[in-house]
Nucleic acid binder design. Sequence first.
DNA 1: CTCCCTGCAAATCCTTTGCATACAG
DNA 2: CTGTATGCAAAGGATTTGCAGGGAG
Lengths: 145, 145
Amino acid sequence: MDDVRTLLKHHGLRYSKPREAILSYFAERDSHVSAESLYLALRQRGEHLSLSTVYLNLGALKEAGLIRELGGISGEAFYDSNISPHYHLVCKSCGAVVDLPLEVLDGTVVTQRVKEHAEEHSGWRLEEPKLTILGVCPDCQAPKA
Amino acid sequence: MDDVRTLLKHHGLRYSKPREAILSYFAERDSHVSAESLYLALRQRGEHLSLSTVYLNLGALKEAGLIRELGGISGEAFYDSNISPHYHLVCKSCGAVVDLPLEVLDGTVVTQRVKEHAEEHSGWRLEEPKLTILGVCPDCQAPKA
DNA sequence: CTCCCTGCAAATCCTTTGCATACAG
DNA sequence: CTGTATGCAAAGGATTTGCAGGGAG
């Protein structure tokens, strides 16, 4: 349990109970959560924290590079503890979010190449590209049974 | 000026003054606008319309395929009249949005390939991928003069 | 002891909605 | 005429902020 304290310290963050709760949530389920759903999940575990604390900490953990924000899904932001580059598919119907392994493209991280080319040619300094593709998941495609 | 009427009709939309104003705005400047900035720009031209009408019509024009929405920039949505596939760079500092020509990647529309691979392997049905990379534009990188 | 974090509630930002009126087809 | 678009204002959802108290270092 001291892991959390050192992890936080290494990233310039203080320890707090909400932070531990959030980090252990991510450690267990390597999932894509919204602030609201994370808040509800932690409350159900008996944790005492407020929604604003969840927002604050998701922001802090993101700044620290411990988690990543998935942009522009549908109003609400999702967070992912998987830091390594990968893409996401989001179902417009049920909201499901799944990872899209990089392997689908012959092991080439194409967005990385786009970024590098863009930096060379444009003079911009860029972050890691995020690729999220909207669509309909297999379940939602099926006619209602 | 009858262009607008026919254009709208061909896309199953009625004519209205706000619609004409919005379309001609896009026709002149091939730019990336938010609902708010479009609203202000049109008011300054003397157009009488409301912000909700702008939202409604941006939605309608998007549905009709006349404009495209750029997802996940920073809370507010941007719209682009350039329908052809291309990427965007967004400056975190000043909010500038610029096009990233596809040429930077040897003419290969990589996100398209990602989409196709994903559809084959995952069973999802996907929309066109949108790639927006956050960063800092050359102007904002310069030390204040 | 100092500063950062928390909780709560109020505030803010962007977008959508309800409803009566006006206009296109 | 019929139906859809408009304007206004009010509602809505997601996130941020202000402030006083509490805990970390």
